[in-house]
Design a protein around this nucleic acid. Sequence first.
DNA 1: AAGTGGTCTAGACCACTCC
DNA 2: GAGTGGTCTAGACCACTTG
Lengths: 233, 233
Amino acid sequence: MDVPLHFAVKTRLVDLLERLGEGAALPPERTLAAEFGVSRWTMRQAIRELVADGRLRARQGQGTFVATPKLIQPLALVSYTEALRAQGHEPAREVVAFEEVDADAELADGLGVAVGAPVHRLERVLFADGQPIGLEITYLAVERFPTLRAVLRPTGSLYRCLTDELGVRFGEGEEVVETVIASPREAELLQATQSMPMFLLHRRSRDVDGRPIEVVRSLYRGDRVAFRATLRP
Amino acid sequence: MDVPLHFAVKTRLVDLLERLGEGAALPPERTLAAEFGVSRWTMRQAIRELVADGRLRARQGQGTFVATPKLIQPLALVSYTEALRAQGHEPAREVVAFEEVDADAELADGLGVAVGAPVHRLERVLFADGQPIGLEITYLAVERFPTLRAVLRPTGSLYRCLTDELGVRFGEGEEVVETVIASPREAELLQATQSMPMFLLHRRSRDVDGRPIEVVRSLYRGDRVAFRATLRP
DNA sequence: AAGTGGTCTAGACCACTCC
DNA sequence: GAGTGGTCTAGACCACTTG
């Protein structure tokens, strides 16, 4: 046995799902395990990896299906709404929380306020074509944007609100991208399988005068999303 | 049982590894499972996630240890050598393969050559402080760089060779970043646990005149690496 | 009620490292 | 040889969706 059994199974499953079309249903795990002559654990390990790779989608109580390609999002200071529309997808948002919190050391540093200063905390689930793909938590200083709660339509574009109504001119930002495993709460909000790899993005953006605008922590489903960055020397 | 048992175990393990210092050894899986009153499978699931998150490192035959923080690499058209040195780490490379292949449709498109044209294929493992963190496969057109094999020192910087010796002036590039699960071969080359989440990067870069330079496919260990991008509006 | 994927157990054997 | 993590089995029960 050169490679692990579950990987051989994975390879055979790839053949199978390429013969089936996009959206097609796979046979049940138990049936596949019996057909392949492996235990259900081994079959599930193979399926689990294909789900993480974005090749399959598993839905409890329904079955396992061949997935559609990943969505590619730009890594840039642009509106989620416009970026998605530009690619022919339908964006939507759902507000999970919109509250005021006290800045901890990291937030204070990123927003240029004192530790303990009031900070807007806006947590939203991002949808593409009706499916949840990301969870975004945005922090903005209350001191700088005191009217935000009054001006922002929760289902509208935050970037549009900031630029059009509050006169913000975005300058430069930086984003750190890493992979993490989703927590149960995060997986539930994103309607994703638990323990799946996700992107964790940490963003700090500034306006054209170099003043801090926002600190953003976002979580995107690794099985549904990829990012495109423009590189410079 | 609100959250899955393995997640509760994971939470308790985080407490434990924060009490232990960086580099400290954890008790064996079987011992921990007994202490926590769970099966070894459940304990392994929790440990597996912490390894994927970059909090633990498991070494077969040795034990499990508290990991060091992730390395942050720039998403930019810069030399791996210089980027790593700038952060106080020691870069190294190991050539896995350096051969000529025929361009398939995707390579031909990315390199601006005809399908079937000869293409350099340089596959290297990237190290930081002696540990493998990435696997990089670079494709360059033989037509454009006929002397590459003669000029490039395999353990040296490709970017330095291209700019200093072959007169290339890098312009702009684009990189698509996604998460994937490592194959057994890839995991072995990177001395990583199998089935771990990794970054898959697809890069195309051009010179200042807009001519294609290279197509790069890289795989970075998700448990050891994060990326930093500079954002523009 | 039946069938699906999701979690978990107990136990086995293998591969590797160190003594 | 002893002890470690890595893979795999057989079987159980739970949670969810659809008829």
